[in-house]
Write a protein that binds this DNA or RNA. Structure first.
Lengths: 204, 204
DNA sequence: GTTCGCATGTAAGTAGTTACATGATTAA
DNA sequence: TTAATCATGTAACTACTTACATGCGAAC
């Protein structure tokens, strides 16, 4: 289960509350792994009872009428993170709605198919830009998480840390680019098929 | 939920038993959507009680000591399939273990990282070849499912049906290619980082 | 005084996995 | 006779989603 490891990995940059972790998941470009807040809070409690993280209760505001919980890695948590990174996992199963649906576009009229491809293209264009920005921020070491991480790591490791992260997000950029290209070829295909149909129905 | 629609789509090629459907999911290259057999049998029963498919009980073998159930689309099932194909769904959330892990490769030694990238590359090379073969079979109309589907569709639609399926699987080929390229750049990166480290530790 | 962002959760439900269980038929 | 393949399921569990619920503090 990768949510737990995503959390351990984020906590390696230092103490964070559930709320801050949730933000990393769904606001920033760091969300290589999607998770909702109920799942995150639940998982943090589980990690705590498994002894992989510890929680420190902090007052919220000066009146201390409510508390927040800041989580940090334990020794066991760090060890588990190391173990997981080295472990070779069975490849993930394919489960791709867009592709599944595209296999049956014959059932939809050309206008609808066009809208499907356009929405696919627009989505991945946006993703591509988002990830390109993130790669740029990593290169110039301007993300908050990376700064925190570099602050607690020895100087000589900095280059390696940055290089692997850049490579990972660069992969996402390429992937998004591939999807955009696929959608654009799809749009061209719709045009082509329509032209063929027209010429077949009214030959000269 | 896309499993139900994957099943409806497969059944559009004609009557099939749960066992045959399960084979389409995990044996053939058609598995754009992964599912295990318990899930498939359960879902078929659900589709049946929802009135989207009907089951016909057939004897298994001549002695008729056991039965199998052949499922077919109902009117409502076909309608639902059409509705689903035209519907524009919210984009899927990213949840990528390989990428998540790659972000933290700094924690592993170069040998381990190399093995990770190699296994990624090998997996997607195999996927790429599998999908290339499948595209070829679709082009020459030699897959069983496609033959069945073409047999029940009007002649003038054949080209469109084949074209969209080829496009969908061609997309998977490109995606696999992108992953292979990413892993190969990863391997180059490991070498580069190691060379840098060596030269820094022993300058000339 | 009300809206926005911070902060934390529960509860009910759906989707998907893994292990267990059974038994028929076919080909070597 | 034994192994492989056909064929169908249940049960227990984990992962994830959605809706509901609460309350503080700051700024306008």
């Amino acid at each position: 289960m990768s949510l737990s490891h995503a959390l351990l990995a984020l906590l390696d940059a230092g103490e964070m509350t559930g709320y801050e972790l949730a933000k990393q998941f769904d606001q920033s470009a760091d969300r290589v792994w999607h998770a909702t807040h109920p799942q995150i809070y639940t998982e943090l409690r589980r990690l705590e009872s498994a002894g992989l993280v510890t929680a420190r209760e902090l007052p919220r505001g000066p009146k201390a009428k409510a508390v927040k919980r800041a989580y940090a890695l334990t020794e066991a948590g760090s060890a588990e993170l190391l173990r997981w990174v080295a472990e070779i996992e069975p490849p993930q199963r394919v489960r791709d709605v867009a592709c599944l649906k595209a296999t049956y576009f014959e059932y939809a009229d050309p206008g609808t198919v066009r809208r499907q491809f356009e929405s696919h293209r627009d989505h991945f264009r946006e993703q591509q830009q988002r990830w390109e920005r993130h790669v740029e921020q990593l290169r110039t070491r301007r993300t908050e998480l990376l700064s925190r991480r570099l602050a607690v790591a020895p100087q000589e490791d900095h280059e390696t840390i940055v290089a692997y992260k850049v490579h990972a997000y660069q992969g996402l950029v390429e992937r998004a680019r591939t999807e955009v290209a696929w959608a654009e070829r799809g749009l061209a295909l719709v045009d082509e098929l329509e032209a063929q149909r027209r010429s077949r129905r009214a030959p000269r």
